[in-house]
């Protein structure tokens, strides 16, 4: 492309415009969770932890919007991956789960959010403590993929709660990241059932668990907590009681509007 003298420079694509994205890949993560890769035209780029709004419009004009965290790392560019859990009785997630196929087009707006965001370039050596429940792992996965992609070796731990072993989203990828020996460790807790020989935690996240998993990272760790409201409250309160400064604890709650 050439610019004529005096013409305006190309403007940066706006993050708040609705764009028509194409579904390029759908992958099963667990029996109730799928990942969708969207090719988004003019994607402005995103930071790990941000989300998009997704809008569905019926032929009569009725439309619904939902927010979904971005699972892909910024380095993947305009191939934006969302991971969606099917919520029974929901308006949007059953449609995504059962109706959408590769080649379909979806309206998205984003990236959105500047609060629940981690950029490896600003704090490349700082310890990172991530706490997730269920599909709350999605924005945390974007952070871990971002960290791995940049070859960081800062101490990092993910404490992840799920009901059953088969409900752990990204389990094989998380275990591979943990086996890479770059300072990342994965700690799982299963709250409803455990497989035979399970040696990990088997209860809901509580003060003692947070203290034990955080301990090797120390009280200067940067913390991100994402999950259902109850889990977020417990974990954030525990971190505050352990003496972590409030400005190092970032939280994101998800709930029934995310269905």
């Amino acid at each position: 492309m050439t610019l004529a003298a005096g013409s305006a420079p190309p403007t940066r694509p706006s993050p708040i415009a609705w764009r028509i994205a194409s579904v390029t890949e759908i992958r099963d993560e667990t029996p109730t969770v799928k990942s969708f890769t969207l090719a988004v035209p003019d994607w402005p780029g995103h930071r790990a932890g941000q989300h998009v709004d997704l809008r569905l419009t019926a032929q009569d004009g009725y439309s619904v919007e939902r927010s979904y965290s971005i699972a892909s790392e910024p380095e993947r560019g305009s191939d934006v991956e969302l991971t969606v859990e099917r919520i029974e009785g929901g308006e949007v997630s059953p449609f995504l789960d059962q109706v959408v196929i590769v080649g379909d087009r979806l309206e998205v707006r984003g990236p959105i959010g500047g609060y629940f965001v981690w950029e490896s370039s600003t704090t490349p050596t700082e310890a990172l403590f991530l706490v997730g429940g269920g599909s709350g792992v999605v924005p945390l996965m974007a952070m871990l993929r971002h960290r791995a992609r940049n070859g960081l070796r800062n101490p990092a731990r993910l404490l992840l709660s799920a009901r059953h072993a088969e409900d752990v989203i990204y389990r094989s990828e998380l275990e591979a990241l943990a086996a890479a020996g770059d300072g990342f460790e994965l700690v799982l807790t299963l709250t409803r059932s455990t497989p035979q020989g399970w040696t990990g935690y088997s209860r809901r996240i509580d003060d003692r668990m947070v203290a034990e998993v955080l301990e090797p990272l120390g009280s200067r760790a940067r913390c991100f907590v994402c999950g259902p409201t109850a889990l977020v409250e417990v974990a954030a309160d525990a971190l505050a009681r352990l003496g972590l400064p409030a400005d190092r604890i970032r939280t994101e709650r998800f709930g029934p509007t995310g269905t």
């Binding site: 927010s67 707006r109 959105i112 959010g113 609060y115 409201t229 709930g255």
Partner: peptide
């Protein structure tokens, strides 16, 4: 259980104010 946080309205606020507000 239905309580979310301000991140949930980030898109609406950004579209109204023209910048991220979260």
């Amino acid at each position: 259980d239905a309580v979310l946080d301000g991140n949930a309205v980030g898109g609406l606020l950004a579209s109204s104010f023209g910048a991220d507000m979260t």
